[in-house]
Design a binder for these strands. Structure first.
Length: 189
DNA sequence: TAAAAGATCCCCT
DNA sequence: GGGGATCTTTTAT
């Protein structure tokens, strides 16, 4: 099925595995998503768990937009907003494989990094693609700077496991990654 | 008003 | 394997 806004009207845990293999384009840089995580309102690990705030407003907006937030005082992280307007759900983009514009990704960093590490983590992914707070709220289906491409649900060889870097909701296996892919954020998902 | 935690990463040992 | 960087949001006095 081709990527379309309609698909993101579903709940995040449904959408998250479907995003594996999908292409994300930012300017001339293009990557293939290999790892995602789902977050919902009833989930204590989610930014939307305690309701809408200034920071997470985009999460409660229309599906198919991108929610970008600042973490640990140093990193940006990007999510695709899911569910109907008014519902705070999103899929965190955790890792991807560089497809084109790889040289630009390398130049976005201070130290030399192996290609397989350029987008192997939510902070690294944003850093390499040049995604920052100015992208928060952008519509992936009409914004000229950033968009999704390719087909959804093409990856059948994926596995789910507990999410990374959270202290609550650790029992929920809402991390999805392509089996055996070298670009995931950590070995043995 | 203060303190702590946080959907992380990088460099050091 | 461990700790520092660095700042916003949330929770506790």
């Amino acid at each position: 099925m081709k990527v379309s806004r309609r698909v993101f009207d579903a709940s995040a845990p449904e959408v998250a595995p479907l995003l594996l293999g999908v292409e994300l384009r930012v300017g001339e840089r293009q990557v293939r998503i290999v790892e995602t995580e789902a977050y919902t309102e009833s989930d204590p690990a989610s930014h939307s768990f305690r309701g809408q705030t200034r920071r997470n407003t985009t999460m409660f907006g229309a599906p198919g937009h991108i929610y970008v937030y600042f973490a640990y005082g140093m990193h940006w992280c990007a999510n695709v907003v899911c569910g109907p307007e008014g519902v705070g759900e999103a899929v965190l983009l955790r890792a991807a494989e560089p497809v084109s514009g790889t040289q630009d990704m390398r130049l976005a960093r201070t130290s030399v990094l192996a290609d397989r590490l350029l987008c192997s983590g939510p902070g690294r992914l944003c850093r390499s693609l040049g995604v920052d707070g100015s992208y928060d709220g952008a519509d992936l289906f009409s914004d000229g700077r950033i968009s999704l491409g390719g087909s959804m649900g093409t990856c059948s060889a994926y596995r789910s496991s507990p999410r990374v870097g959270i202290s609550k909701g650790t029992e929920t296996p809402w991390r999805f990654s392509i089996v055996g892919d070298r670009h995931v954020s950590r070995p043995r998902p």
